[in-house]
Simulated assay, not measured.
Amino acid sequence: MRRIYHRFPQSIDLDFELARPFQDVLACMARMHDTHTTGRGPDGLVKERIVLQVADGRTQFQDLDATLTRAGAITEVADFRVGLQKTLLTPDKRLPVSENVFYLRLVDKGPVTECYVAKESRLGDMDAMDLRSLLKGACE
């Protein structure tokens, strides 16, 4: 089943190919969903979290679930909303640093998967190339 978002941006920031079949890329995306890393930043500990949502009913997104990535549940094309959140961890509280939101379209092209990336807004400290590096690192 195709998972298309009807308001996917017409202006694409980056398009590239992953040298993996469509179902493998979906499995990689499912493994990345709701994961986080913690590293030392200039102001202290910074938690980076990845939240993935898949298009549902052409008008909205739902959280990516392992059942959606099983073979045959999503075919041909899938649109995702990728949220990359950074939070500064202090002894007293957690302070949001930035949130980068991208739209990602995956298209099945046989042995490779075509990817189209568009950033939702100009806010945040990441760009489409950073998302490409993240995906390539997770899937290859």
Rank of each mutant, 00 (worst) to 15 (best):
R94G: 08
D56G: 10
Q85I: 06
P9H: 00
L104V: 15
N100V: 09
K93V: 06
V82M: 10
L95Y: 03
P21E: 11
D65A: 11
D43E: 12
Y116S: 15
G57T: 03
F102Y: 06
N100R: 00
L14G: 09
R2S: 04
T113C: 07
G110M: 06
P21N: 11
L52H: 07
R94K: 14
L95V: 14
T59V: 14
I74S: 01
Y5E: 04
L88S: 05
A55T: 10
K86Y: 02
H6N: 09
M126G: 01
R58F: 11
V117Y: 05
Y5G: 02
V112M: 07
L18E: 00
Q60C: 06
L88Q: 09
D92G: 13
M129Q: 13
G41F: 03
Y116W: 10
D130R: 08
A128G: 07
E48H: 15
R7S: 14
E140F: 04
R70H: 08
P111E: 02
P91D: 01
R105G: 07
E114Q: 15
V54I: 14
R3T: 05
L104A: 12
E17S: 15
R3K: 14
G83C: 08
F8H: 06
A19F: 13
G39W: 01
K86A: 13
P42S: 06
Q23H: 08
N100E: 06
A66K: 12
K136V: 03
M1G: 12
V97I: 14
Q62Y: 00
F22R: 06
P96G: 01
R94H: 12
M126A: 09
P9R: 00
P91Y: 02
T38A: 11
D92R: 12
D63G: 14
V97Y: 00
I74F: 01
